[in-house]
């Protein structure tokens, strides 16, 4: 019993409530989902073990492949556009002395809005009758006449744009926080050496905020896997699966087609994918990367 009053054990008392809730809310359902992927369960009624049948079907599913490709495109898009804009804006903001708070708030504001509100705003803006397209048509311009959400060639990028618009302000804030941690003497020394603004960014800012930057990269990669709400609200994965992503496809299998076993198999794939990413970052850290 002494172990329970041990000083080192005290921390566990604080961890326990959260761990207990996680066990029931995340742990057990996750394990159940792992088990369900080997069954033909339809969400109700009896559960039959069918071995790896769901996984065999997965590899033959052209729409799942499409969803995986779309997730990869989504991840690349988020690793480039919002990150690039956020880094630039955050760096520029460090040079602004007056009104900086206004810009920080303005950039961060979309992140505070519920996804459904963000989606409705953009859906309305791109609406062919009530949106910008309708407005331009009335003044004689054929611009944005068709909503990009409803075109096969643009739907995925249009949804990614809306999600990116809501997300990049968050990146600005965390990059700004990292930039404020950088020792000002380094910039003063660079000024004496005659470094340009870009050189200071490239050789001082970027290396110094590397932990924050790598963290942002990691969360973008991980968060890109279960992306769901923006796709579901804006396009439902359509038209013609052009904006379908894995989580939306998984939802459709479970709640539209009642194929919970198959849906669990998709979930299991997602789980292992995320585990691999986390493991990779763990390895980088072990290899001495400052992340």
């Amino acid at each position: 019993m002494k172990i329970f009053s041990n000083k080192n054990f005290v921390a566990w008392y604080f961890v326990f409530p959260v761990a207990f809730i996680h066990l029931f809310v995340i742990g057990i359902p996750s394990l159940a989902s792992l088990a369900l992927c080997l069954t033909d369960w339809r969400g109700l009624g009896e559960i039959n073990y069918i071995g790896f049948e769901n996984f065999i079907e997965l590899f033959d599913d052209r729409y799942l492949k499409k969803a995986i490709i779309n997730n990869v495109i989504w991840t690349i898009a988020f690793l480039t556009v919002p990150v690039g804009i956020a880094l630039t804006c955050a760096y520029l903001l460090t040079g602004i002395k007056r009104g900086q708070m206004f810009f920080r708030l303005a950039f961060f504001f979309p992140y505070m809005l519920a996804s459904v509100i963000n989606c409705q705003i953009w859906k309305y803006l791109f609406h062919p009758i009530h949106g910008l397209g309708g407005f331009f048509e009335r003044i004689g311009w054929d611009f944005l006449a068709v909503s990009p959400f409803t075109m096969k060639s643009t739907s995925l990028f249009a949804v990614a744009f809306v999600d990116g618009w809501h997300f990049w302000g968050f990146l600005v804030v965390i990059y700004l926080t990292g930039m404020y941690q950088v020792d000002n003497h380094l910039y003063e020394a660079a000024d004496i050496e005659g470094a340009t603004k870009f050189q200071k960014f490239r050789y001082i800012t970027l290396p110094m905020i590397r932990p924050v930057f790598v963290f942002s990269i990691m969360i973008i990669i991980i968060w890109s896997v279960p992306v769901f709400d923006y796709v579901y609200i804006l396009t439902g994965g359509g038209p013609a699966y052009s904006s379908e992503v894995i989580a939306n496809y998984m939802y459709s299998q479970a709640f539209e087609r009642f194929d919970v076993g198959y849906s669990s198999a998709i979930g299991t794939l997602m789980f292992f994918y995320v585990m691999i990413i986390v493991a990779l970052f763990g390895l980088f850290r072990k290899a001495g990367w400052d992340i």
Partner: peptide, 13 residues
């Protein structure tokens, strides 16, 4: 009017 507009228009519209 078009497939794209059909996708973009809902109940109220």
């Amino acid at each position: 009017g078009s497939l794209e507009n059909y996708y973009a228009i809902g109940w109220d519209d």
